[in-house]
C-alpha cells in the first residue's frame, strides 16, 4: 500500500512537471492576432513630388502595417507626435477602411487637416518632429513608437523599416521580441530595423519577398533534394524518437503502478475468493468502491449466473456485467447531470 501511495505521489509530481513545461512552452509561443501586431512602418516627412492624397494634395504621411495573419481594426486607436499627449488623434470608428487585412498597410496623411476625413491627422509631420506613436484605444498602451530626427530624412524619400514589421518596437505583448531588449540598448545603438529607404512604397511592402525566388533559391542550393530529405527525415525521426522515450518512461511508471495496484486488490479480495471458491477478478478501483459494494456486486453476479439469465459475457471463470440499456442513464434523454451520491 505504501508503494502504491508513493507511486501516486510520484505520478502527480511528474504530471506537475509536464504541466509546468507545457505552460512555459505555451507562454513563449503565445502570439495573439490583435492590435499589438500593428506597427509603424514607413514615414515621409517632405513630400513635394511623391504620393498624392485623395484630394490631390501632397503631404507627409505615416504608414501602419498589420504584421499578423488576421484582419485588425485600428478604429478607436490613437496616433500622436507628442509623448506627453498620447490621445492626440483618435482614429474614428465606423469607417470600414480602418480594418487592415492580414499583412497589409494603411496610410495616414499628417497634414493637420482632420476635417478632410478619417485618414487625415490633426498634426503635421515636419523637420521638427522627433516622435511618432500608435497608441491603443485605452490611450495608455503604446503599441509602437518611433523616436527619430525628421530633418535627417531627405526630401521625397521615406524613413521606414528595412523589412515590413521587423525591428525594435515598444513592447506591447507580454512576450514580444523587443521585451528582451533594454531601452538603454535601443537608445544607445539606434534602431537597426529602420533606415532611409531607397524607394518610397506607400500602401505596399518596403521589400518585396518574392515567393518564387525563394523556391528557385531552394532548387539551386539543393538541386537533388538530398538536404531537404535528410533534414526532414531528421525532424520526423526526432519527433517520434522523443515521443518514444517519453512513452517508455510513462509505460515503465505505469507498469509499476499496476503491479502495486494488483497486489493491493489481491490482498483485499483474498477472503472472498476463498469463501466462494470461484476465481473472481474485480476490475474496479478499490479506492472507488466500498467493500460492501464489491461484495454485493459479486453476490449478485453469482446469483444471476446460477439463475442462468444470460447476463454475463461468455468467459470462463470471469464474471462480468453486461451493460443493459436504461433510459435513466441516457444522456440524450435527461440532458442534465446525473445526481451522484456523496459518500
Amino acid at each position: 500500500m505504501t508503494t502504491f501511495l508513493c507511486n501516486i505521489k510520484q505520478m502527480r509530481k511528474i504530471s506537475l512537471y509536464i504541466f509546468t513545461f507545457c505552460l512555459i512552452l505555451c507562454a513563449f509561443a503565445a502570439n495573439g492576432q490583435n492590435l499589438t501586431d500593428m506597427r509603424l512602418n514607413e514615414i515621409v516627412v517632405k513630400n513635394t513630388n511623391g504620393y498624392l492624397d485623395d484630394y490631390g494634395n501632397r503631404s507627409a504621411w505615416v504608414e501602419l502595417f498589420n504584421t499578423s495573419y488576421g484582419t485588425v481594426d485600428v478604429a478607436g486607436c490613437f496616433l500622436t507626435d507628442d509623448p506627453d499627449n498620447l490621445k492626440k488623434y483618435k482614429i474614428p470608428k465606423g469607417d470600414v477602411l480602418t480594418k487592415i487585412k492580414p499583412r497589409q498597410h494603411l496610410l495616414f496623411y499628417a497634414d493637420n487637416e482632420p476635417d478632410k476625413g478619417t485618414f487625415h491627422l490633426n498634426f503635421a509631420i515636419d523637420s521638427t518632429t522627433t516622435y511618432i506613436a500608435l497608441v491603443n484605444a485605452d490611450g495608455k498602451q503604446i503599441l509602437d513608437e518611433l523616436t527619430f530626427q525628421a530633418h535627417k530624412v531627405p526630401e521625397n524619400l521615406s524613413y521606414g523599416r528595412k523589412v515590413d514589421g521587423i525591428g525594435f518596437t515598444k513592447p506591447a505583448g507580454f512576450f514580444s521580441r523587443s521585451w528582451l531588449i533594454s531601452k538603454y540598448e535601443k537608445e544607445a545603438n539606434g534602431d537597426p530595423g529602420w533606415t532611409v529607404l531607397s524607394k518610397v512604397t506607400p500602401q505596399s511592402a518596403n521589400v518585396i519577398d518574392n515567393k518564387e525566388s525563394k523556391l528557385i533559391r531552394l532548387k539551386e542550393r539543393d538541386p537533388h533534394g538530398g538536404i531537404m530529405a535528410v533534414t526532414a527525415m531528421s525532424v520526423v525521426f526526432s519527433a517520434l524518437i522523443i515521443l518514444y522515450f517519453l512513452f517508455r518512461l510513462v509505460a515503465a511508471r505505469n507498469i509499476k503502478m499496476e503491479e502495486a495496484k494488483k497486489q493491493a486488490s489481491a490482498a483485499a479480495e483474498a477472503p472472498v475468493e476463498a469463501k466462494q471458491n470461484v476465481n473472481v477478478t474485480v476490475n474496479a478501483d478499490p479506492q472507488e468502491y466500498t467493500d460492501e459494494e464489491i461484495a454485493a456486486a459479486i453476490v449478485m453476479a453469482i446469483h444471476l449466473e446460477s439463475e442462468n439469465e444470460q447476463v454475463h459475457d461468455v468467459e470462463s471463470n470471469i464474471l462480468t456485467f453486461k451493460q443493459i440499456y436504461s433510459p435513466w442513464g441516457n444522456k440524450a434523454l435527461i440532458m442534465k447531470q446525473t445526481p451522484s451520491i456523496n459518500r
Binding site: 537533388h224 533534394g225 531537404m228 530529405a229 526532414a232 527525415m233 525521426f237 517520434l240 524518437i241 518514444y244
Partner: peptide, 17 residues
C-alpha cells in the same frame, strides 16, 4: 514501433527527390 512509422516516410522524400 513509432520508429517504423518514421522510416516509412522515406517514400515521401524519395519521391520528392
Amino acid at each position: 514501433l513509432l520508429l517504423i512509422g518514421a522510416a516509412a516516410q522515406f517514400g515521401i522524400f524519395g519521391a520528392y527527390a
